[in-house]
């Protein structure tokens, strides 16, 4: 034991100094979701399968949908990604989602008039 601890003295610490030094998440990490409104057909299978009811698909116009995701409720299981037959949902590696203001946790994924994807806080 004593040899091991003395050896550790000259080794780089194993600890990661977190906020200064961020760890890269591996590929395929189940982090924050993204929604592609142009692919969505509004079948609402994701809503049906979501274990916590974190996702809501709203119809805003004919063949135009937006997704409201409550990041506080979401458990990042990515079941909705599996359930979606049109692959309109995807996971990202984004994990730093903590917020002091719980209103900011509700995110609306939609599209603007030029069909560009938008992401904004729910009203």
């Amino acid at each position: 034991m004593i040899r091991q601890v003395l050896y550790s003295l000259f080794k780089k610490p194993a600890t990661n100094l977190y906020p200064a030094q961020k760890l890269e998440m591996p590929k395929g990490y189940r982090g924050k979701l993204v929604f592609y409104p142009e692919k969505c057909i509004g079948c609402k299978m994701c809503m049906k399968d979501c274990p916590t009811g974190a996702i809501t698909i709203n119809k805003i116009a004919e063949k135009k949908f937006e997704a409201v995701i409550d990041l506080g409720k979401c458990i990042y299981c990515a079941q909705c990604v599996d359930s979606c037959i049109k692959k309109a949902l995807e996971v990202t590696k984004d994990v730093t989602l903590a917020q002091l203001d719980d209103k900011k946790l509700k995110v609306v994924f939609g599209s603007d008039s030029e069909n560009n994807r938008t992401e904004k806080q729910a009203p």
């Binding site: 990490y29 458990i75 990042y76 990515a78």
Partner: peptide, 14 residues
């Protein structure tokens, strides 16, 4: 880290 790589999370592998 291996579990995160394989399943997408460190716990609650899903």
């Amino acid at each position: 880290d291996i579990l995160a790589l394989l399943t997408g999370n460190r716990v609650n592998y899903g």
